[in-house]
């Protein structure tokens, strides 16, 4: 224990510099989020993650955002346990019909202003599960989506780019 803690003090942190968010991505986020967000949120966002029927691949990469390399919380982004505390709903999966009601109720439980970020190919257009009797077409078919982060699953660095874009634009200038 002592050795592990001592090393933690003496070594440089593993956390890596944030990825650059390019202008085109920022513009896309700006269009999606609109001006209203900028004044209200300051430089922090509380995120409630909802698995709406993903294969859990997206969850693995979202969890990885918390490891020392990405260290999400240093940017003012944090995951919260309740939709009541959330600004952003981060939704994965093709929205299975069995999860539709729970997703809607979670959205309704989230106070305004709120944003929906759809994560992964399934959330965008059903991905490999498009056309199934058991799935809605996408997150967009159930909720108004403000931002889409592509990938199957998106790597943590892609998730970080999308969320940082949201943060940059929602901060007062």
């Amino acid at each position: 224990m002592r050795r592990t803690l001592l090393e933690g003090l003496l070594h440089r942190p593993l956390s890596e510099p944030p990825p650059a968010v390019d202008a085109a991505e920022l513009e896309a986020v700006a269009r999606a989020v609109g001006v209203a967000a900028r004044a209200r949120l300051g430089r922090s966002l509380s995120i409630r993650e909802i698995d709406a029927g993903s294969c859990n691949g997206c969850e693995l990469e979202i969890i990885a955002l918390g490891n020392a390399f990405y260290d999400l919380e240093r940017f003012g982004l944090r995951f919260v346990a309740s939709p009541r505390h959330a600004d952003v709903l981060l939704v994965t999966g093709p929205v299975t019909r069995n999860m539709r009601a729970a997703l809607l109720r979670t959205w309704e439980a989230t106070p305004d202003p709120k944003w929906v970020v759809a994560v992964g190919a399934c959330a965008h257009d059903g991905g490999e599960f498009a056309g199934s009797y058991a799935c809605e077409r996408s997150v967009g078919a159930v909720l108004p989506v403000d931002l889409f982060i592509p990938g199957c699953p998106p790597a943590p660095v892609d998730l970080l780019k999308g969320l940082l874009g949201l943060l940059t634009l929602s901060a007062p200038r």
Binding site: D51, G53, S54, G93, P94, T96, N98, M99, A102, E128, F129, G131, S132, Y133, A134, C135
Partner: peptide, 11 residues
């Protein structure tokens, strides 16, 4: 359980 049923076998 069953919330994440995606109809994989049918697909």
């Amino acid at each position: 359980l069953g919330y994440t049923h995606k109809g994989t076998e049918a697909l």
